[in-house]
């Protein structure tokens, strides 16, 4: 893939990612984008170096007298064996098989998908597979069939959509593989996809809209996509 993403996380958001201060859901979607985007990978390395300096420069508050001493830990630690080979790539799944073919996934999403995704059919030709990451975000894989359209909706908080394959568009533009699309409460939008689109989406507050209703109106279909094995790659 030579397509370079045109939509990226802000430097501020990458900074929080580098510090490790974001929720798991946000961290996962940024990690997946960073893996796909050389530019953001470089920025993240620089921000990690920056965060390291901040860490080293922050004064260590030595509360006089009760200076903690951890040296008793040393012997136990150094009696442990060291690892000379990195852990192998442990994920059973590194791609998702869709009806039209398979899509290879960024590492962290492959790990998530390896637990098995349960797809639900939603209104408008959308398939959704939720994953649980934390109590602060709602995360899901979304597959938009060619010609599908998400009902108009609004968000209470932020919604990030990372395009993994195909493309979608809304009132503000067209988004392709590796694009990181951030929408907040001020946006009302209606995503649609002509060619079909696989995304990973994270919302930092629950959507309170027609979604639940759509679920009731539509036949509830549940199926599991076949697990891909890494041997097939």
């Amino acid at each position: 893939m030579t397509y370079h993403s045109t939509h990226h996380p802000s430097r501020e958001l990458l900074g929080k990612f580098a510090e490790g201060s974001l929720s798991a859901g946000m961290s996962v979607v940024i990690s997946a984008h960073v893996e796909l985007c050389p530019q953001c990978r470089e920025t993240t390395s620089a921000l990690e170096a920056e965060a390291t300096l901040n860490w080293l420069q922050n004064p260590v508050s030595d509360t006089a007298g009760s200076e903690p001493d951890f040296s008793h830990m040393i012997d136990a630690i150094t009696s442990e064996p060291q690892s000379i080979t990195p852990e192998a790539d442990r994920f059973a799944v590194n791609e998702i098989h869709m009806l039209e073919g398979s899509v290879s996934l960024p590492r962290v999403l492959a790990k998530l998908a390896s637990d098995g995704l349960v797809w639900k059919k939603m209104a408008g030709g959308i398939n959704q597979a939720s994953v649980m990451l934390d109590n602060e975000t709602q995360c899901e894989f979304l597959y938009m069939k060619p010609g599908s359209q998400v009902p108009v909706h609004k968000h209470r908080g932020n919604e990030i959509t990372l395009v993994l394959d195909g493309s979608f568009s809304d009132e503000m533009g067209r988004y392709r593989e590796s694009d990181f699309v951030l929408r907040n409460a001020s946006h009302q939008h209606q995503p649609m996809s002509d060619e079909g689109c696989l995304c990973f989406a994270v919302q930092d507050s629950p959507l309170m809209f027609t979604k639940g209703l759509a679920r009731l109106l539509n036949p509830f279909l549940q199926y599991r996509f076949r697990r891909a094995t890494s041997a097939q790659a």
Binding site: G20, V28, S31, K111, L112, V131
Partner: peptide, 10 residues
Amino acid sequence: QPNTVNADDI
């Protein structure tokens, strides 16, 4: 929080 991914995956 669910143990679906860890920091070394992220």
